[in-house]
Design a protein around this nucleic acid. Sequence first.
DNA 1: CTGAAAGCGCTTACAG
DNA 2: CTGAAAGCGCTTACAG
Lengths: 355, 355
Amino acid sequence: MPKPATIIDVAREAGVSIKTVSRVVNREAGVHAETRDQVQKVVDRLNYRPKQSARSLAGGRSFLIGLLYYDPSAAFVGGVQQGATLRCREAGYHLVVESLHNDAPDLPVQVDRMVSALRPDGMILTPPLCDNPQVLKALRDSRTPCVLISPAADDPEHPSVRMDDVHAAEEITNLLISLGHQRIAIIKGAKEQVASRRRYQGYAAALKAHGIALDKDLVVQGDFTFPSGVEAAYQLLSRRQRPTAVFASNDEMALGVLVAAQRLGLEVPGDLSITGFDDTPAAARVWPPLTTVRQPMDEMARAAVDLLVATPRMGENASGIPAKPVQHRVLKHELIVRDSTAASVDKPARTRKGA
Amino acid sequence: MPKPATIIDVAREAGVSIKTVSRVVNREAGVHAETRDQVQKVVDRLNYRPKQSARSLAGGRSFLIGLLYYDPSAAFVGGVQQGATLRCREAGYHLVVESLHNDAPDLPVQVDRMVSALRPDGMILTPPLCDNPQVLKALRDSRTPCVLISPAADDPEHPSVRMDDVHAAEEITNLLISLGHQRIAIIKGAKEQVASRRRYQGYAAALKAHGIALDKDLVVQGDFTFPSGVEAAYQLLSRRQRPTAVFASNDEMALGVLVAAQRLGLEVPGDLSITGFDDTPAAARVWPPLTTVRQPMDEMARAAVDLLVATPRMGENASGIPAKPVQHRVLKHELIVRDSTAASVDKPARTRKGA
DNA sequence: CTGAAAGCGCTTACAG
DNA sequence: CTGAAAGCGCTTACAG
């Protein structure tokens, strides 16, 4: 196989200028239909594909989107990546991934290195990196458009995509209440992540709406890890008056509660109902499978790519044209009811509400 | 912030030619130490970073490595990706990921599109894509160097990195035998994946070495999925004479066996020992945690990147210089003994052998 | 040890 | 609707 065809080869064969080839390949308007067809034919025959580095150098767009993430094992990142690669492909972009330590001392340097070498057209940030001021500053300095996925707060500068944690937590708590549970414990997530606060908020709101007093003894701090779930569960289940249900702020911790319950000889959901959050693959692979909330990670990622592809480089329309307002999209979650939840043993199940 | 500095800016400021700046930045030999220092100082001051698209266009290297994978949820891919991004960063490369369907009708087109747009300097393929003839052909046509991770067979054309499935399966079977198990069932993996055959081979070899007859009734076909593990377990555990141990060919299926056992009211490991393969995150998050084999996914990925970075583009040394022989590296696995295995109830545990 | 020139393969901005 | 020219920011191949 000889060298790949260039735009010049195509132009020569088709008897047109390279500019016309460029127009056809980029689907620009203003080319005679006949010319277009003729050029397209040659493109197909020579199997011509524009070289990204040349386009990038001349045009100032790299057709690259970066995905910055921290925890590689997290199912969350996997879902985001999946959605992002697929949408990128549709849009003619490619996804470059970078795994960073959220507390690496040279984080800004690492970010800067990637950005200034690749000049990606946009960057997708997942928690907790999307809340890291150093990362955001490095990106701002380089004027790289960013979309934050599930950030701590809606940043006025960057568009974001997230789900409604408060509502989801409320719904899952309502489900437990509707099953007759009154003593519902919560294991909170990592302190620094705002999702933790939001989920707790939803839990508290649901209790309040149903006139159930919030019992401090039933609120335990976790950190989103499996061991913290085990630990928290032992604390909760050794109380003089056990909770009849535990709302773990994510699946990892819910899995920990399940393990702890099994080790203590408790039946789930007979003696204890458990709910998680995230719908990780493992949630459906344990017995009993976990009732949880599915975050629309792939759709969030697709939306993020869309925002980036449609957004001009920061500051490029500083010429007086008012920039579009920064968008903050909230996507729909889904309550996944499985077998880890059942009617409370304490009281008969009441009529379902809210779930 | 103004436009990023270019090589010309640096050259002007340092009072040298751009060629000298290029040499300093690329750490080429043959630059006077003083000149080097002086240039480096300007580079730092202006925060100069060579633009990848320009380097790529002029130099013919893209500094991009592609990772092609199929199953995004697989923990295997996560581990590979993690190792690959880290090693890429060290080597000054970046990782572009692409999720492909192994049986998409336009697979070759998708591969070709990525390769001809980006011209990555190398490609990492994971199973089952690394065994897909269409993918391999598309890559060969484009002369992109590839490294196969855990391929079906050692390809004479492409270097590969894998672990020793046969030995690992033998070890885990030996462990069960040493615990006194005689009726050890196996749930085989997906037929098309060679890892399935290799693991079965190791199982059979271990039984034979210990004079245990291979019982056809204890061999069940699975496909590496969780449901297939559940299904296979029901079959096995409803036999007139139950196995005392089940070797599932991966963790997903082992998780299925665990669920089935729990539903049937069997104690694990009291009534039944279970072993998996892969050491996925979930394996340590269930009760009892699974005895399994850890594949060195991150090290495999690092080795793959090393092979690519050191390998010249295919055919480029066709000028008479004999190419280095294609390397096939086998990395060490690790037996992870947890609580899903215990002495057989049928017979007293014998002295440990082999494990 | 250092540099001047050519060129990689496209797009942009401008003409016609 | 189409094209000729310039240029993006580097590296390669040569000279000296």
